[in-house]
Write a protein that binds this DNA or RNA. Structure first.
Length: 865
RNA sequence: GGUCGUAUAGCUCAGAGGUAGAGCACUACGUUGACAUCGUAGGGGUCACAGGUUCGAUCCCUGUUGCGACCACCA
């Protein structure tokens, strides 16, 4: 047997072997109950990063756990077409090839995207499988495949018919680089240094009013100046006119409560076409909405000639220069303010007034809020429900349309007279038009399909039920919907989670999932966000190559502490790898001892004679309970911890050390079957090494570990600590003493004869190796030379011919007296005695034991020679 | 401005109303038949600060401070 688990060799073999079994358990398993997770579909452009790996492993632990227990288990895989992200990538590729994508035309461009998708789109799926994701790749769905596309059309037309989708000319967040609208949650604000310019607007012939702005180039779009109605400084100007610098266009000075007297100069320029707040003020005061920029953010023909065609930032520079020359710039102030960006393109967002499609989300949001309030959906950790509520309670209409090419084209056809027909197909739209215009096919006016496509998240919001056949086929819906758990990051609670709930309730009439597990954000070792620019990105594939997939998975699980970001570095994965090796070595020991796998041997149930073997089975049961409840409560960190602890502290450090001299059949069988049962419990987190060892130790006679249920716990098993625990502590104390006196040779342990004599004689064969002593003898009295020690009041003795330093004795003594004084103080507290009489009595007993120990220690000063 | 999270060993982090835990790092010893990707033993903490509840608070409550995230505002 080789030195360690050769992950690079065995992982692919196990993946291959698991395939069929996984596909089978999607369709049928032992039970009729289902367990379903809709995996968040990664971008088709994506490749695996640690964040994916993290969510994926959490989901896979649940899938494997439930699959082992017999559930019909479905982890529904998929890919997202990721409209904007994908379009950017393909456009850049074309550009690199010297092709101007904008000249290709819609159909040709989309064709290119599909080609690219076929070529490299599946990468991430194979990476997920490498990560051990127990999913059936034959079930992979794509948000742009035919069924999904039809579902999107169906959903859109339904919402349109129900009056929830409308088209309107409104101010939206506009990306001048991509030349598309984006939704408000796609905008991220960055705090950065900037300037505040104080500009003088002439009033009459010799007066001025000063406004403050961070975006002077928008002055040409101004429709009014606003002041607070009660502002004594400006009250007299209300109703008068001011003139825009350079153009001399007259605009009214109006009063509006929105004005904050403290900010800037207290005068507020109103530019309805280029600012959200101004847009609303404009509506209130019936102001004209004048756009002064084109779709690329350049100044249009509404501005003085010298500024036309300039990008906003250039226009700003030029304007400031001119204002300065004309003496209209009062002053400039350096400030720090936040600027809206689109992270995808890097563009600074320009608010623009355009025609867009909106979804009225108010009613949908109310239902979604209720679903969580009433507990039909539970957030883990709970506090994320706050984030969810806060957004939904202040929800704005969802801007659905994007002016890009890659995505689901809006199923609305426009007639030249402005009438719109929403239908799933062009033919249906024509039918509607014929009816509306009351004409036949030939004289039907020309219909043009709306060129916009839908926000990618529209199709994502339908994902949990689209992947189950909705709206075409209800068979799988009945079995798997609502799904059980959704695992995702907090950053997409708005983008995805809330919208799935809204659409799920609306279309499928039921919540899409029962639990939302919000997984922590993955950061680097020092708590820094991973980013390409910082160069601190860790590639999970590299970690898998180097340390093995199991090591990575175990590490991620260990770190999955709820409500806290996760810092991960290579050193963490090293620990995982070391643990896998430990497991490997434990199995090597069993092999060397001549383990016996015996199907009929039900160690967990009956017939064990040896206390030590009973003990390890008891420990196994305790461990399984802990592991199971950790998984049930989504405490993957505690689960991983229990996996680690049982193998290392209990199985290796105690049991294996103790049985080194045992050669009986009961022990060999027990050791083997406890280890095998342990493999089952550890399987969900470290599927590869456990599967490998399972097959090896069972000689391939059993079904895969992947579908081996954990053996039921026995409830009547005596789970209280017993004499075995006591003598394990005694052995530990002997080792500790030897360490403290720096003794290397083997000693003899003497036990004073008493009520446990029979137990000691019958069990010395394992106490001896565990304590690392030559012999364990029962004696009536201790000799003069040696070290006395106490465990739970019982007295022991180690023969030791040399002198022992006084300091060791003092150390033990002071630890004991310290314990005692603490205990005494506690016991003397009358209120404690009254409040918790049983606990109080326990402490009294404990103190008595310690007192006895102290007396004995003082009576025989064991350290003097 | 609002909301949420968080503060425990040198580092990364668990934890429970009643004697403070792990891993890494550190110190010493050790290649004895599972394991040097290791073992054995050890050192190391006023559990951020101030109040309150309690017989008892590191744990619960309130406040303060530090750190982080999100939302809003941003003339």
């Amino acid at each position: 047997m080789c030195k360690q688990f050769d992950h690079n060799k065995f992982e692919p073999q196990i993946v291959e072997k698991s395939k069929k079994v996984i596909a089978q358990t999607v369709k049928s398993n032992v039970k009729t109950e289902t367990f379903t997770i809709t995996l968040p579909p990664p971008n088709v452009t994506g490749s695996l990063h640690l964040g994916h790996a993290f969510t994926s492993v959490i989901q896979d632990m649940l899938l494997r756990y439930k699959r082992q227990h017999g559930y019909v288990t479905l982890g529904q895989p998929g890919l997202d077409h990721a409209g904007i992200a994908t379009q950017i990538i393909v456009a850049n590729q074309l550009q690199d090839q010297g092709i101007n994508w904008q000249e290709l035309g819609r159909d040709e461009f989309i064709d290119r995207v599909w080609k690219w998708k076929e070529q490299s789109g599946g990468t991430i799926l194979y990476q997920l499988v490498r990560l051990g994701m127990s999913i059936d790749l034959d079930r992979v769905r794509f948000t742009m495949d035919d069924d999904a596309s039809n579902a999107v059309l169906y959903a859109f037309t339904t919402l349109y018919k129900d009056g929830l989708i409308y088209r309107a000319k409104k101010i939206v967040n506009w990306d001048p680089i991509l030349k598309t609208a984006i939704s408000d949650i796609e905008v991220s604000n960055k705090t950065q240094p900037g300037k505040m310019w104080y500009i003088k607007y002439p009033i009459g012939t010799c007066d001025f009013i000063t406004i403050a702005t961070t975006r002077p180039e928008t002055v040409f779009g101004d429709q009014a100046l606003a002041v607070h109605p009660d502002d004594e400084r400006y009250k007299h100007l209300i109703g008068k006119k001011a003139r825009i610098p350079l153009t001399d266009k007259s605009i009214p000075i109006i009063a509006d409560d929105y004005c904050d007297r403290e900010k800037g100069s207290g005068v507020f320029k109103v530019t309805p076409a280029h600012d959200f707040a101004d847009f609303e003020i404009g509506q209130r005061h019936n102001l004209h909405c004048l756009s002064i920029m084109d779709e690329a953010g350049r100044m249009n023909d509404e501005v003085p000639e010298e500024f036309r065609g300039l990008p906003g930032i250039e226009a700003r520079k030029k304007l400031i220069k001119v204002l300065l020359e004309k003496g209209l710039l009062e002053r400039t102030e350096d400030i720090v303010h936040s600027v809206p960006y689109n992270n995808r393109s890097g563009a600074i967002i320009e608010p623009m007034v355009t025609n867009q499609w909106f979804l009225d989300t108010k009613v949908l949001a109310e239902a979604a809020i209720k679903a969580v309030e009433t507990g039909r959906i539970r957030f883990v950790p709970e506090q994320w429900a706050n984030t969810y509520f806060e957004w939904l309670r202040n929800i704005q209409p969802w801007c659905l349309s994007r002016q890009i090419l890659w995505g689901h084209q809006i199923p609305v056809w426009h007639a030249e007279n402005g009438k719109m027909f929403c239908a799933m197909t062009e033919a249906e739209a024509k039918q509607q038009a014929k009816k509306y215009f009351d004409v036949d096919e030939k004289s039907l006016p020309k219909l043009t399909r709306d060129p916009d496509v839908l926000d990618t998240w529209f199709s994502s919001a339908l994902w949990p039920f689209v992947t189950l056949g909705w709206p075409r086929d209800q068979t799988e819906m009945r079995k798997h919907y609502p799904t059980d758990v959704l695992v995702t990051g907090f950053d997409i609670i708005f983008f995805w989670v809330a919208r799935m709930v809204m659409f799920g309730l609306y279309f499928a009439k039921e919540v899409p999932f029962k639990v939302v597990y919000i997984n922590p954000l993955v950061r680097d070792e020092h708590g820094q966000k991973m980013s390409k620019s910082k160069g601190n990105v860790i590639d999970p594939l590299h970690l898998m190559d180097k340390y093995g997939t199991d090591a990575l998975r175990l590490t991620l699980a260990t770190l999955a502490v709820p409500g806290r970001d996760v810092n991960i570095g290579e050193s963490h994965v090293e620990i995982g790898r070391n643990f896998v090796t430990k497991m490997w070595n434990a199995s090597k020991f069993l092999e060397m001892k001549g383990y016996i796998f015996d199907r009929e041997f039900k160690t967990y149930r009956e017939n064990l004679i040896q206390p030590l073997n009973k003990w390890i089975v008891r420990k196994l049961i305790e461990f399984k309970r802990a592991a199971q409840s950790a998984l049930d409560e989504h405490r993957f960190d505690l689960y991983a911890q229990s996996i680690h602890k049982f193998l290392k502290d209990v199985f290796c450090d105690t049991y294996i050390e103790a049985i080194k001299l045992c050669d009986d059949e009961e022990t060999r069988k027990t050791a083997c079957s406890v280890f095998l049962e342990y493999l089952k419990v550890a399987h969900p987190v470290i599927p590869f090494v456990t599967e490998y060892l399972w097959e090896k130790l069972t000689n391939g006679t059993e079904q895969m570990l992947l579908i081996s249920p954990w053996t039921n716990n026995i409830n009547d098993y005596e789970l209280k600590p017993d004499l075995v625990d006591h003598y394990i502590s005694v052995a530990g104390e002997v080792r500790s003493l030897k360490g403290l006196i720096g003794c290397k040779e083997k000693l003899d342990l003497l036990v004073k004869s008493g009520e446990n004599d029979a137990f000691v004689s019958a069990n010395e064969h394992w106490i001896r190796p565990l304590a690392r002593v030559n012999s364990v003898e029962l004696v009536e009295a201790f000799p003069a030379r040696g070290i006395r020690f106490f465990v739970a009041g019982q007295e022991f003795f180690v023969k030791y011919p040399h002198e022992v330093s006084r300091s060791l004795f003092d150390k033990k003594l002071s630890a004991l007296t310290q314990d005692m004084s603490k205990l005494t103080a506690k016991i003397e507290n009358e209120s404690y005695k009254k409040a918790k009489p049983e606990e109080w009595q326990n402490d009294v007993d404990l103190l008595a034991v310690k007192k006895a120990e102290l007396q004995k220690m003082e009576a025989v000063n064991w350290c003097n020679a």
